[in-house]
């Protein structure tokens, strides 16, 4: 247990050599690697912090954008609802107007149909009445009735209105020389009846007239006198045709 100075000196030297070797080839690279790694970690932490901040900023921006979109959507929906309400209101108004027009048209068509039907019924009734009256008058027709109608015609000629009387006289005046008045009767007239008729015609026309008598059974009863262009009716067939035409116009 003695202290050897040679060993002491060599051990000190050995330790210093070992210290240099380890410092040069072990501690330096290890510490450099640790520093580099720590620096890398710090850089990564810095980048992560920056990225996190950017992400938070982006998140805030997107949230604001989403809120804007939400507001725009709500606004668009409200506008759409308003437009829909307006469209529905206007559509309902148009529909009601259309329905009213349609109803009026239907009513008009119904009224027209009813009127047409009523007119058809009236025409049918007139036809039936005409047919019944014609049948009844044909059964009542006789030479005496024709004579009675001729007598009544003569009375009417005497009381002829002025306008018709003027027209008769003008037609009589326009007759060509030698032309005769055509007198058609349902039954043959006797001479007395013919004379009374010609006398009444001459008085109404204010001039003497010649007549050509002809028997026309289609007149049923009565007579028809043609003075030029002036035609005088006093027979049942023309009266029935007149009523028939009036019934058709009604």
């Amino acid at each position: 247990m003695s202290l050897d100075w040679t060993t002491l000196a060599l051990e000190m030297l050995n330790f210093l050599v070992l210290l240099w070797i380890l410092k040069r080839f072990f501690y330096a690279p290890v510490l450099a690697a640790l520093d580099a790694r720590q620096q890398r970690l710090r850089d990564q932490a810095t980048r992560a912090t920056r990225t996190q901040a950017e992400a938070a900023q982006l998140k805030t921006r997107y949230e604001e954008r989403l809120a804007d979109w939400q507001r725009e959507r709500e606004e668009a929906r409200r506008q759409l609802e308003q437009e829909l309400v307006q469209l529905r209101t206007s559509g309902m108004a148009a529909l009601e107007a259309s329905l009213a027009d349609e109803e009026a048209a239907v009513r008009a068509r119904a009224a027209a149909g009813a009127a047409s039907h009523e007119a058809a019924l009236l025409r049918e009734a007139a036809e039936q009445a005409y047919g019944s009256a014609a049948a009844m008058l044909r059964r009542l027709a006789s030479p005496q009735l024709t004579l009675c109608i001729a007598a009544m015609f003569c009375e009417d000629l005497a009381a002829l209105p002025d306008a018709e009387q003027a027209a008769l006289r003008k037609a009589a005046a326009d007759l060509a020389a030698g032309a005769a008045v055509e007198v058609s009767s349902a039954h043959a007239l006797d001479a007395a009846a013919r004379d009374r008729l010609m006398a009444a015609l001459a008085q109404a026309a204010a001039r003497p007239l010649t007549a050509a008598f002809r028997e026309t059974p289609e007149l049923v009863a009565g007579l028809r006198v043609a003075v030029g262009e002036c035609l005088l009716h006093a027979n049942l067939a023309d009266e029935l045709a007149f009523f028939k035409s009036r019934g058709a116009h009604a």
Binding site: T7, L10, E11, L18, L22, F26
Partner: peptide
């Protein structure tokens, strides 16, 4: 000067550390 076994063992230790440090310094990777 007498070289003791302690000095020789120390030389061996130093040599071992030196070899290990040299090898480590060459094989250092990120």
């Amino acid at each position: 000067f007498g070289i003791t076994d302690a000095v020789i063992t120390t030389w061996g230790i130093v040599a071992g550390f030196a070899v290990a440090a040299l090898l480590a310094s060459r094989c250092w990777r990120p």
